[in-house]
Design a protein around this nucleic acid. Sequence first.
DNA 1: ACCCAGGGTCATA
DNA 2: TATGACCATGGG
Length: 215
Amino acid sequence: MSLKQVYDRLYKHYGPQHWWPGDTPFEVMVGAVLTQNTAWTNVEKAIYNLKLYDALSPHAIVEVPHEQLAQWIRPSGYFNIKARRLRNFCQWYIEQGEYPQLSQWETNELREGLLSVNGVGPETADDIMLYAFARPVFVIDAYTRRIFSRLDYITGDEGYEELREFFEKGLARNRDKVQLFNEYHALIVMHAKDICKMKPSCDDCCLKKVCLYLE
DNA sequence: ACCCAGGGTCATA
DNA sequence: TATGACCATGGG
């Protein structure tokens, strides 16, 4: 079964996911940093606080004292380190001219720029690439590894870039890649949560049963 | 009480 | 290059 066929199956079963939750590209970027190793429900509380104090803007985040920012984003966990990461990112974001300028960057340059920020790794960068800048980049996360290694598409110990290339090449023939990658990653996350919800042991769960489950 | 969540950095060998 | 420690909240 091709990667596209797996996608079709997931899509038929779960339907459109409407990712990324967020009103603006900048909110998506903030969410991408805050959700690092953290449940999304906790991130929502942090973003709610930022909105409440009118601080969901790159300038506000750069200007507010560290202690204050850390308190606002406290529910998302790792609040000290994430306050620093948000500040690092926003400083870079402002320096590069914010969205109007950055949106004109060539895709590879933009990705390298994001990765140059301390606190933004491959997955966070690709979340931002895909969901804030609408670039055709396939996001790899722990769910993707688990699901597709259980389906024997991969071993699971490949490097991040290797996996990204695997998925991007495997889906290269499709037309609207941004839309496809957008839904695909969201569906993977949805599926992982759905299946892991009905397991007791996740050892046996994911894709062989998953595909059967989806039939 | 324990486990994990939409990761990344840094020190060490 | 490859592990391990560390960051910290909230829900199951």
